[in-house]
Write a protein that binds this DNA or RNA. Sequence first.
DNA 1: GATGAATGAGCGTTCATTCAT
DNA 2: TATGAATGAACGCTCATTCAT
Lengths: 201, 201, 201, 201
Amino acid sequence: MRVSTRQVQKQNTRKKIMETAYSVISNKGFSVPSSVIAEEAGISHGSIFAHFPTMNDLLNNLLSDFGDKMGARLHMLAKKSDSVDNLLKEHLKVLEEYEAFYSRLISEKNRLPDEAKTTFAVIQSTLALHFSNVIEREISKGTVRKLPTHMLFNTWLGLVHYYLMNKDFFSDGNESVIKNYGPELLSFYLKMIKNERGVYE
Amino acid sequence: MRVSTRQVQKQNTRKKIMETAYSVISNKGFSVPSSVIAEEAGISHGSIFAHFPTMNDLLNNLLSDFGDKMGARLHMLAKKSDSVDNLLKEHLKVLEEYEAFYSRLISEKNRLPDEAKTTFAVIQSTLALHFSNVIEREISKGTVRKLPTHMLFNTWLGLVHYYLMNKDFFSDGNESVIKNYGPELLSFYLKMIKNERGVYE
Amino acid sequence: MRVSTRQVQKQNTRKKIMETAYSVISNKGFSVPSSVIAEEAGISHGSIFAHFPTMNDLLNNLLSDFGDKMGARLHMLAKKSDSVDNLLKEHLKVLEEYEAFYSRLISEKNRLPDEAKTTFAVIQSTLALHFSNVIEREISKGTVRKLPTHMLFNTWLGLVHYYLMNKDFFSDGNESVIKNYGPELLSFYLKMIKNERGVYE
Amino acid sequence: MRVSTRQVQKQNTRKKIMETAYSVISNKGFSVPSSVIAEEAGISHGSIFAHFPTMNDLLNNLLSDFGDKMGARLHMLAKKSDSVDNLLKEHLKVLEEYEAFYSRLISEKNRLPDEAKTTFAVIQSTLALHFSNVIEREISKGTVRKLPTHMLFNTWLGLVHYYLMNKDFFSDGNESVIKNYGPELLSFYLKMIKNERGVYE
DNA sequence: GATGAATGAGCGTTCATTCAT
DNA sequence: TATGAATGAACGCTCATTCAT
């Protein structure tokens, strides 16, 4: 019992550190000093290193967790996703949920430990899987134009990332770019890839 | 006379600093120490600060110059660009020319001084101008599908940036992602936006 | 009863700490972190400080105990030691027994709390006592050359310590320097101090 | 000219750091913090690292220099050393000169970077060379007893080191142990190894 | 009494910036 | 003007010690 209480407390602190790191990084980026995370979490600087041997280790855990969480979330949308429309609508919902951190990740990925690339790959490939399933179905049904799936995917992701990375260009302050522009992105993208006879002729 | 010589000397050093900073940042990213730039330029560390009060100032100048240079280069392609095909082909040429630095810029822009945003905006709006001219002409000619210009633009840029930012995903080592994938990107994008009667019907 | 059990428990933990500290220090030196000792002992880090107010205090106890133990052991050899030959042979035996920790002690003594000096003094003076008894007997018998006892003692100890401290110079890895060189040291030393008529003349 | 002045100043600072490190380490041992050395040298903490990439590098330079200096000094005494008496007398002089640092070196050698072992080896082998030359000459002349040279050497060094390492045992405060005990050590050692007919018979 | 999570002073190191020359 | 040695604030990390449980 007592042991369990302790462990719970330790896990709470660990969780607190990771959650704080998550939110601080979301706000200020990955180059935030460990001391700031500690301060923000209301713990001592040394405590971080009692839970994570190095800052890289904290980052790796954060990224891995994030990849798992967002990956799982993306997996779930397979069920609802009978159509591209729905899949991408759900994708946007997920993105909005994780928007701040995800934006930092895709933006700073190249300066981060390798785990960042893995995280990115996990998220991307999970989405790609469902995307290609749905798209290929729609292509064979004739509702989506017959174009290479991977390029359709890269186009969608490129478009969304473009908005996420240039957030300050599109939105002021801390508004969600996905909230503001998601519907427009979606409708445009669909219009572009769909095989709607008669519409553009 | 002597003064003039000095000024020439000074301008030469300034130029040397900026050119070296450009190439060093292209290779190693924006977080390269100022001492490395000085070393690489063959000048003293202090010289940098004799020409630029702070590193931020150097960066601002660098970015502004880059914006001007790439902006000018993009302006030039208006002449050759009688069609989207040609415009984007030329755009890819320009990108390949500036690929390394441009990739760093779009990747690290958010951690950089505000000037970075301006630079980015200059480049982007210059391109956007020509893009919209050409696109709208083609739309009215019926060769390009009737879709919102700014979205067509963002899609193209998003797609290209997606490849530039995930260079290590697509290309090994230092190969040019534009050289390797440019043609595929172009042909796919054109296929997607073009109103090629008979093809998809 | 219960109290007594507790006390036994407490003494056991205390003993465990000291024994572990002894072996860990023997292997890794005195600069080993307290957390490592706790871990190795299979107790909590805090337990060390429940038994010893500071690490210095633990060290002091350790050193004092070691002094007593090795001192007692050295006392015992008085009985067997009818001759210098036997005394030193026994001394080497004792050294081999305590070699690892003893080497650390003489090597790091000066960075240690004052108790280290006392410990060292206890061991040294115990040995010195028996040494001088035997030596003086032999000198008066004429079997050992008439030289100042304390210098004979310091020479012996200096020689032995020289080998212990430069262990990596003489032996590879973890071999016992005393095992490897003890006999040579002994025979040489005896040859040097003995009054063997006819041999060197 | 100007360049030369600068270089001289830099060399002065470097020298100042090394000299201060030498004296601070002599007084307080090798575990002294870099900040203390900087403070004592009257320079900023960062300056140390402008001259030496790491503290290990400073130590290595210090040790290497010390080895060279003391090695050279020991080489010089070959000339004066027509006899063991003179050689060892001169050896003691050199030791007295370098006593504090040398004591720290032989005491803390095992916790130091590998360079320390090299330094120690340089000094030792230089001395050993001259020692064996002189000793073997004297042995063949019959003035020194016919004993293994390396053991005679180790005995002498062991005896001297014993006094140096137990300085606080023999001398109070900062007095030189060599100054106080050198003559006694020398005369005893010589008496022990010399083949003085008639004296002990 | 034992626990072990939390603490925080202190370490070696980096690097943009300053300033005497 | 150009130099480059010197600066010092800030960083990630260690570890003896504390204290609520």
